[in-house]
Design a protein around this nucleic acid. Structure first.
Length: 779
DNA sequence: CGCACCACAATTTTT
DNA sequence: TTGTGGTGCG
């Protein structure tokens, strides 16, 4: 009832292939949810001729009074929850979907597969990975791991990494995988071609694959590639999943790659009940292999496809939408769509040209303070930029003005060296043959096993075709290793003990065991530098993550935990509850919305970026990115540029972004000095130094300056309804599951939650959000 | 083993 | 400007 006609059509068209072109802010998620509800309640009732088309409220009422029943008449083969597969791109989106489905459908929602491509693949592979030469408890490599592995291969094969960078090789390999080419196939192809680079890469790809297999590991691309192969090569497996999933839904379809397209078509059964939702104008991940052709060609790939456009925007006011529409209309390769709103024009878009990047920051800070004074919360603001390097000047200004902010992106908690070390121990305990991770920890904390020893051991491993773990476990059998044999075997013994311990203990106990027996924490704490103290904190924080996972999933297994965090990103950590301004790249902002948005660095060579200026295709992607940025704003939009900008240690004078000039004048308020950049002379020049814009200066540190000191670590994602609430009072003695006993020192209400400060006897003072941490605290 | 020093390069990154 | 990776020395 609350849907508009187009949304309703998208919900009710249950049968066959359906393409939903959903503009920004058009209620896409609502449609997805209502569609699933509809499937479960009425099956195909809304999309077949067994139920009268023109059924209306009166008829329903009549039916109800006459028979006392109603719903049954409109029901045709209602769908069971486990027959639905809903794929999203981020864990966050998946969690949100799950939460909203659970809210409206209750328990039943738990059986719906609402997950990311990658986690869907993991679930399928856990069932049948043995058919592909992996164990069912294979581990997952992240990009860093993959790079390290390539580097190792370079070393072993004496390849000069000056000429070919590991990252480049990896991206070629990734492209090959995305094009559904296994190492063997790619190798064969390369042999019969005269492309020397390809031949070289194919050798590395083969070796990489071999080592991944012997480490029983898959990288992100492998998860998809192997799943696709599993489905393509095994009729019984394919039948199993196709019979199971009667209805497949895919969100953000514009960002899928070729493999994901294959995956989607392979899990979709004969009835072709596949519904994809996306917006070709928001396709911004071409550089990661996304092919916009998937969405542009959907109607050709699926016969009898129906297409529905959602163009009514519920997010932004008129001028903002007009700006977005006119910018994107300069692109050629698009389906064509025009957003409209019933909201009225709203405020004009502000275009403001600053002197330099510091003024830009100050302008943003000044505006935020003014609007905050008028009643806006800090969480109503987002500052967007094209690249992370731009964040520093903004941070500086915000800090200086005492504005709370949070940065999305940058180094993930799970990417930090110390966290990866402990995780490597956990991984190796589950899979000792993981050479890469074994090497990572073999001398961490230092235990007298030097680089030379490891080199020797590894070369023996390569020669004998055994794993590093096997070599070091029998180190006394190799005379070359005689000198460190004892230490090596001791280490091997320790790993074996962890593996045995892991057999019959929960993940939290395994964590404790590892941290204790390796002395890793003691080692960090003993160094007594602020950096190492911060690292120690992060290691302790990891326990919180373990406990949170166990709590939320009810899964105690090490494999489960490791797979879960391998697929976890920083964005999942984003908690909109705390009252702070959000800083992030335009890419990370996709899918979010804010009352007020500042887009900084609207200059040629920044946005559009330097390397997009030469290619039409890349420029169009930048334009889509700009479209994404603009459509994040609900009521106020600021587009900022600076006539001089210090970036990467150099000062540049850039012209105003062409995207600004693509917005018709009637939608903007321009403050640009005369004779500057592209613009017409004659606009007002507003000095950014207006009284009241500046605030007392206090020395502050920006992110990069304080990285190691204040890494805010891992915050458990705020999911589901709050667990049983605990009430605390200052002065009270409590015990935290990870940090031990302590005294409550302070309670501060914050965003419907409480910030609790506890002085832990062992771990020192800590600030925790009650809603998230309460479950770990006992009195 | 750990540190100091230097050269080098830097879009964007849902997994 | 900044982080990173390599090298060489005590």
């Amino acid at each position: 009832m609350s849907l508009n006609p187009m949304q309703r059509r998208a919900v009710m068209a249950t049968e066959g292939p359906l393409l939903v072109l959903a503009g920004a802010g058009s209620g896409k998620t609502t449609v997805l949810i209502r569609r699933i509800e509809n499937l479960m309640r009425f099956g195909r009732g809304s999309d077949c001729n067994l139920v009268p088309r023109d059924i209306n409220e009166d008829m329903i009422k009549a039916l109800k009074t006459r028979t006392g029943r109603c719903e049954e008449y409109a029901q045709v083969l209602p769908v069971s929850p486990w027959q639905i597969l809903a794929i999203t791109f981020t864990n966050k989106a998946a969690d949100e979907l799950k939460a909203r489905l659970e809210a409206s459908l209750g328990e039943a929602a738990l059986d719906i597969w609402a997950c990311t491509f990658h986690s869907a693949c993991v679930r399928m592979l856990r069932r049948d990975a043995d058919r592909l030469g992996f164990s069912k408890s294979f581990t997952i490599y992240d990009t860093q791991d993959s790079v390290s592995l390539i580097k190792q291969i370079f070393k072993d094969k004496n390849i000069d990494d000056k000429k070919l960078s590991p990252k480049q090789i990896l991206s070629v390999i990734s492209k090959a995988k995305t094009a559904n080419r296994t190492a063997e196939e790619y190798y064969r192809e390369a042999q019969s071609s005269d492309d020397l680079l390809m031949q070289k890469v194919s050798e590395i790809y083969s070796e990489y694959s071999r080592r991944m297999k012997s480490a029983d590991s898959m990288d992100f691309d492998d998860l998809l590639l192997y799943t696709v192969r599993l489905l393509q090569g095994n009729e019984d497996v394919r039948d199993y999943w196709q019979n199971r999933f009667k209805y497949v839904l895919i969100d953000e379809y514009q960002d899928t790659n070729f493999l994901q397209y294959l995956f989607a078509s392979l899990v979709t059964g004969r009835e072709n009940n596949i519904c994809v939702v996306g917006d070709d104008d928001q396709s911004i991940y071409k550089f990661r292999g996304a092919t916009i052709e998937n969405i542009l060609g959907f109607e050709d790939n699926y016969e009898n496809c129906r297409t529905i456009r959602l163009e009514q925007n519920y997010r932004s006011t008129g001028h903002i939408l007009a700006a977005a529409n006119s910018v994107i209309s300069n692109n050629y390769g698009r389906k064509g769509k025009n957003l409209w709103t019933e909201k009225g024009n709203g405020e004009l878009v502000t275009v403001y040209c600053c002197d330099n990047e510091r003024d830009e920051g100050q302008y943003v800070a000044g505006q935020i303070i003014a609007m905050n004074r008028d009643g806006d919360n800090f969480r109503d603001f987002a500052v967007l930029y094209r690249m992370n390097a731009q964040s520093n000047s903004i941070e500086y200004a915000l800090k200086r003005n005492g504005i709370p902010y949070r940065i999305i992106g940058g180094t993930r908690f799970f990417d930090r060296a110390e966290v990866k070390d402990v995780l490597a121990y956990m991984n190796v305990s589950a899979a000792p043959n993981d050479d890469l991770r074994l090497e990572r920890i073999i001398n961490m904390p230092p235990r007298g096993i030097g680089a030379k020893t490891v080199d020797t051991a590894r070369s023996i491993a390569v020669q004998t075709g055994k794993s590093l773990f096997e070599i070091i476990s029998a180190a006394d059998r190799y005379p070359e290793l005689a000198r460190s044999a004892t230490r090596l075997m001791q280490f091997g013994e320790m790993i074996r003990s962890f593996a045995a311990f892991a057999e019959n203990n929960g993940t939290d106990a395994i964590y404790d065991e590892i941290v204790e027996k390796t002395g890793y924490l003691t080692y960090l704490e003993g160094k007594n530098t602020p950096e190492d103290t911060a690292r120690a904190e992060n290691v302790k924080e990891l326990k919180t993550s373990v406990l949170t996972y166990m709590e939320e999933s009810g899964d105690e297994t090490l494999d489960g935990y490791l797979a879960n965090i391998a697929l976890y990103t920083d964005l999942d950590n984003y908690d909109s509850d705390s009252d702070a301004v959000t800083l992030m790249t335009v890419h990370s902002s996709k899918g979010l919305e804010f009352k007020t948005v500042f887009v900084t660095g609207m200059e040629e060579t920044i946005f559009p970026g330097m390397s997009s200026l030469t290619s039409q295709e890349d420029l169009e992607e930048e334009r889509r990115l700009c479209y994404v940025a603009i459509t994040r704003a609900k009521t106020k939009l600021f587009l900022l540029c600076a006539r001089q900008r210090l970036i990467f240690g150099r000062t540049n004078a850039n012209r105003v972004s062409r995207f600004i000039d693509e917005i018709p004048e009637e939608h903007v308020h321009k403050y640009i000095p005369r004779g500057y950049g592209y613009s017409e002379p004659g606009f007002d020049y507003y000095s950014p130094r207006t009284a009241g814009d500046y605030y007392e200066y206090t020395p502050v540190k920006t992110r990069t300056e304080q990285r190691t000191q204040e890494r805010s670590a891992y915050t458990p994602p705020a999911r589901k309804a709050a667990p049983a609430q605990i009430t605390l009072e200052p002065g009270e003695r409590v015990t935290h599951k990870a940090f031990g006993p302590g005294t409550v020192s302070k309670l501060t209400p914050m965003g419907g939650d409480f910030l609790v400060e506890i002085n832990f006897d062992g771990a020192g003072p800590k600030k925790l959000m009650l809603r998230a941490a309460g479950q770990f605290i006992t009195k």
